[in-house]
Simulated scan of single mutants.
Amino acid sequence: MLLGSAIFVMCFFADLGFCQDFGYDGTIGPNFWGERYQNCGHGKLQSPIDIEETDVIVQKFPPLIFKNFDEPLESVHLKNNGHTVVVSISGGAVPSISGGPLAGTYNFSQLHFHWGKTDEEGSENLINNQSFPLELHMVMFKTDHGSFAEAANETDGLAVLSFLYIATSEDNENYEQFAEQLLLVQDVGSSVDINGFVSLDDFTTTDRNHYFTYRGSLTTPPCSEVVIWIEFKNTIKLSHNQLQEFRELSGQEGKLEHNFRPIQPLHDRVVYMNSPE
């Protein structure tokens, strides 16, 4: 158990979120992750999943409470870690979330993205077997556990807020600054600091009453089953050109054109859908 915990912390903190010995193709692709990381191959609470609306249980959860989501971010750090692009907060108030299916308060750790080669695929979680061109994962840790490292080893330690995107013909003005900075982190290991970033409300969406939630895992090694997923139904619009900026990033083996894990078996898990009505 101690060895597993050490591996988890080492992997998760490597470049803010990921082990370095995996990829999305060939012998280091998702089909081979389980050879080194047991949860990836034998876990029963793995993510992502296909959310079938006909099979969910509708439930009215308490309202989600978002703190500091409406404030512009003073300073953020943007980095290409070879697997995705990661945004962490380097200055200013830390956003947090509570309520809904969460028992306690969860603080912001980082956010990152998953995408595909075309506008027809790229998201990790599916809804009614439909894929989306981009998915944002906002990783939060439970403050009751004291620190991210401690929370990352608890069954309720992490919450991931997941947002899906659709392609449109017009640019999203809230992403203009972000898209410009993506050009500066095309190389693996490159990073840039951004001052005066938009608020998380503007970067995602304020329509957050309708969502799915389930118990799951990280979608990259070590695939630890410590995540409460909140998948929002409302989508975010990005133009094709803005989506294409993600596909121009470099990975460890050339262009990082796709970085999504295939869906995993649901087993006996229940997926809930929050319905304020």
Rank of each mutant, 00 (worst) to 15 (best):
L218D: 00
L218I: 11
L218K: 14
T219P: 05
T219Q: 13
T219D: 05
T219E: 11
T219S: 12
T219H: 14
T220G: 02
T220C: 11
T220E: 10
T220L: 12
T220N: 12
P221K: 06
P221Q: 08
P222E: 00
P222G: 00
P222S: 00
P222W: 00
C223A: 07
C223R: 10
S224L: 14
S224Q: 09
S224T: 12
S224I: 11
E225Q: 15
E225Y: 06
E225W: 07
V226W: 07
V226D: 11
V227R: 10
I228Y: 02
W229V: 15
W229S: 05
W229P: 00
W229G: 00
I230S: 03
I230Y: 02
I230F: 07
E231I: 15
E231N: 13
F232C: 09
F232G: 05
F232Q: 10
K233F: 01
K233T: 05
N234G: 04
N234Y: 04
T235Y: 03
T235V: 14
T235C: 00
T235Q: 11
T235M: 03
I236A: 08
I236R: 15
K237N: 12
K237H: 12
K237P: 01
L238Q: 08
S239G: 05
S239L: 02
H240A: 09
H240R: 12
N241Y: 06
N241K: 14
N241A: 12
N241C: 00
N241M: 07
N241P: 01
Q242L: 05
Q242R: 10
Q242M: 07
Q242P: 04
Q242F: 04
L243F: 07
L243A: 02
L243G: 00
L243V: 07
L243N: 04
Q244E: 14
Q244S: 12
Q244F: 10
Q244N: 15
Q244M: 11
Q244W: 06
Q244P: 05
E245K: 15
E245Y: 08
E245P: 08
F246A: 04
R247K: 10
R247H: 04
R247F: 04
E248I: 02
E248W: 07
E248Q: 13
E248P: 00
E248F: 10
L249N: 02
L249K: 02
S250H: 14
S250K: 11
S250L: 13
G251N: 03
Q252K: 14
Q252I: 08
Q252T: 11
E253N: 13
E253A: 09
E253F: 13
E253M: 07
E253Y: 09
G254P: 04
G254Y: 05
G254I: 04
K255E: 08
K255M: 09
L256A: 03
E257K: 13
E257M: 12
H258W: 10
H258I: 02
H258C: 01
H258T: 08
N259V: 02
N259Q: 02
F260E: 05
F260H: 11
F260A: 14
F260W: 07
R261K: 15
R261S: 09
R261P: 01
R261T: 15
P262D: 02
P262H: 04
P262W: 00
I263H: 03
I263M: 00
I263P: 01
I263Y: 00
Q264R: 15
Q264L: 09
Q264M: 15
P265V: 06
H267V: 09
H267C: 02
D268S: 14
D268C: 03
D268A: 06
R269P: 10
